[in-house]
Design a protein around this nucleic acid. Structure first.
Length: 656
RNA sequence: GCCCCGAUAGCUCAGUGGUAGAGCACUUCCUUGGUAAGGAAGAGGUCUCGAGUUCGAACCUCGAUCGGGGCUCCA
């Protein structure tokens, strides 16, 4: 009789007894929480079979963290049902940095409820309940989950779980159905849930670092046609230190929140009187915005764009022609009726640029023809989505449209890509990847398959040519054509969609755009849409968070503040300030009655890049003393040298 | 748009069915001080708006507006 079999542990053959579990194989490594058996994640309790390829999955690995978070979600669900026996279970998948679980409850959870649930979770963790996997038939699952209507729905869906809402496949895989029991040490079952798994060996491993974050409503299976469930979000980490580090990251993100900094630094505000999602820039924010715009306008002109201007409002027929109105009427501000016409605030600039193209005959000699403007558009975003500067109802796009021949399109797209990446770099964003948004199944996409395939191929080739990472985004295209977008990572690792480049074969046809080619025939140009920042407002918000309000000198609202040690030194600093002003530097001298340390505190909090301090010593030697935002000092610098140093930092657009 | 939460001084926030509070900021005065808060006095609020309940509402109810967290959406 053969009581032994051979498996491969991380590729190495190992002879083990029949009935050996993965847990036993990895008994020497306590950080292994789940096993990968023949490529599939399995519970450690899995009994190994002859020839299995087995790898230990560490709790700190991406898969390990997902399992930890999923299991922690189960712990939370058990705690919730303990306090709210009527709570029906939705789904509870792991997500980035944590997990959530949806519940159908009679009343929404309160912050106090979360505290109670969190405490109960501690008890469950301490009980070290085992996660036990059990295969069931559909009928058995239906019987056991008779009180869980949402689970029953999932059972019905399991064959198409791949198409189900995000997270549903964590509950039911495409194969056999399983139920996980949470078993106490005395053998009693504390909780069970229909779940694909795998799970941690016991609840104890969740205990090192979890925290419930917030509760919110979420539509069942992600559709607003479905009832809303109450979702609780939590975070979970292998160690307390990692939990703390996560909480610190969240706190840092809050400190950088552009809405907070916008108030603290007096950059912009959203007056109630104007309306939701409509921003006003204050003088200091106006400086940053103007510097951004001036630079971007100059760069566009250098890159061969013509600066144009168009109105904010138009008759509806224009947007009928472009095809926008049928698709997006409900996200446009409602029409104004006047002189028997319907006028709309524009939600996009391209139709107006098309009219400029069409205003006279065009020759192939003019192509590529590139129109650019800061075009203000208005979009009636749903009330629940308006958010700071990143999602507004009135925004200004740095929008351009390149009209090219089909042959010129690849080079133009490459040109645009290089241009936008260079621009982003100039603003201090130098870590990005690209996304290729393509046609989906939806009805909204217009144009033939061939056109889409060709346009997508052109974009893809240009994107690959940059050598940057390219991620697919199926179904993410605009209705009229595919797009490349640049996703930039900011100083704390978050990504933002910035620039977009779209290949459009539809609008030239809809507008009847044409140029005369070398052989005298009329040809239809291809149109390439491109926004570099997306919107000025949004980019302003992203930059504010990226720099945590400490803008590089060329963007800083106030670049230099002179701080006298005493009143007697004000004149000396005024003279320095005059020299700086003559060089175009934004400088102030703080002659107020405060003591010097107070002034340093005030202007440091305002994140002014250069503080120039002068007292007896500096004044006597025709010098100033630098104090930078990090607290470092550079004393006794001759005035002319100080001026050059500041001018140089501004001109080179460096951060200090 | 949907669910939940919120709105008190310029900002951050206490507060309670019966006279409106703090810190910072602001103004004035004293202080002339070398690297993140010197001292004193003062001014500042229709407690978001509208209706209702009440002898009485900033507080309780309803609605609106704006904001926050999510969901859905994002040309």
């Amino acid at each position: 009789m053969s009581a032994q079999l051979t498996v491969h542990r991380s590729g190495e053959p190992v002879v083990v007894a029949v009935g050996t579990t993965a847990a036993e194989l990895f008994a020497d490594d306590r950080d292994v929480v789940v096993a990968r058996v023949n490529g599939e994640l399995r519970d450690l309790s899995r009994v190994l079979a002859e020839g299995d390829e087995v790898e230990g999955v560490l709790i700190s690995s991406e898969d390990g963290l997902a399992v930890l978070r999923h299991s922690t979600a189960h712990v939370m669900a058990q705690a919730v049902q303990q306090h709210f026996p009527e709570a029906r279970l939705g789904i509870g998948p792991p997500i980035r940095d944590g997990f959530y679980f949806d519940f159908d409850v009679e009343r929404p959870f309160t912050p106090e409820d979360l505290k109670t649930v969190e405490k109960t979770m501690q008890r469950i963790v301490k009980e070290a309940q085992r996660f036990e996997r059990r295969v069931v038939t559909d009928d058995e699952a239906r019987a056991e989950m008779a009180d869980e209507p949402y689970k029953l729905e999932l059972i019905g869906l399991k064959s198409s779980a791949g198409d189900a809402a995000d997270g549903a496949d964590a509950e039911v895989g495409a194969g056999e159905l399983t139920i996980y029991d949470n078993v106490r040490r005395d053998g009693t079952v504390a909780f069970k849930d229909l779940c694909r798994g795998p799970h941690l060996p016991t609840t104890r491993l969740s205990g090192n670092g979890y925290s419930l974050l917030r509760s919110a409503a979420a539509y069942w299976r992600g559709s607003e046609k479905n009832p809303q469930l109450q979702r609780i979000y939590g975070t979970a980490w292998p160690t307390k230190d990692e939990l703390k580090a996560y909480q610190e990251r969240v706190a840092e993100a809050e400190r950088r929140d552009h809405r907070r900094l916008g108030t603290e630094l007096d950059l912009f505000s959203f007056p109630d009187e104007i309306g939701s999602g409509l921003v006003v820039f204050h003088p200091k924010g106006g400086v940053v915005k103007r510097e951004m715009e001036d630079y971007v306008r100059r760069r566009h002109i250098e890159e061969g764009f013509d600066y144009v201007g168009t109105p904010h409002i138009s008759k509806g027929g224009l947007f009928e022609t472009s095809g926008h109105l049928p698709y997006y009427e409900d996200t446009m501000f409602p029409a104004m009726e006047l002189e028997n016409s319907k006028y709309y605030l524009k939600a996009m600039n391209c139709p107006m640029h098309n009219l400029i193209f069409r205003s006279r005959g065009r020759s192939y000699r003019e192509l590529p023809l590139r129109f650019f403007e800061f075009g203000s558009v208005y979009r009636y975003e749903k009330s629940g989505v308006v958010h700071g500067l990143t999602r507004v109802r009135g925004l200004t796009q740095d929008d351009s449209h390149s009209y090219v021949t089909t042959e010129q399109a690849p080079a133009e797209i490459r040109h645009l890509l290089d241009f936008v990446l260079g621009l982003l770099r100039d603003f201090g964003l130098d870590d990005y990847y690209l996304e290729l948004s393509t046609r989906g199944d939806s009805e909204k996409f217009i144009g033939s398959d061939e056109e889409w395939a060709q346009a997508t191929a052109v974009l893809e080739e240009a994107a690959l040519g940059t050598g940057l990472e390219l991620r697919p985004d199926p179904g993410g295209a605009a209705f009229y054509g595919p797009k490349i977008s640049v996703q930039a990572r900011d100083a704390i690792g978050r990504t933002w969609q910035m620039s977009t480049i779209q290949y459009d074969f539809n609008q030239p046809a809809r507008f009847g755009l044409e140029y005369t080619s070398a052989d005298g025939s009329k040809q239809q140009p291809v149109m390439i849409h491109s926004a570099k920042f997306g919107s000025i407002e949004r980019f302003f918000g992203v930059l504010t968070e990226h720099y945590a309000g400490a803008f590089p000198p060329w963007l800083a609202p106030i670049q230099v503040v002179g701080i006298p040690v005493a009143d007697a030194h004000v004149d000396h600093l005024q003279a320095v300030a005059a020299k700086l002003k003559a060089r175009g530097i934004r400088v102030e001298v703080d002659a107020a009655d405060d003591r010097m340390p107070k002034k340093i505190r005030t202007w440091t909090k305002q994140k002014v890049p250069f503080l120039l301090i002068a007292g007896e010593e500096d004044a006597a030697h025709g010098a100033v003393s630098f104090r930078l935002r990090d607290g470092s000092q550079d004393n006794g610098i001759p005035v002319d040298e100080a001026v050059e140093r500041i001018v140089d930092a501004v001109q080179r657009r460096v951060q200090v």
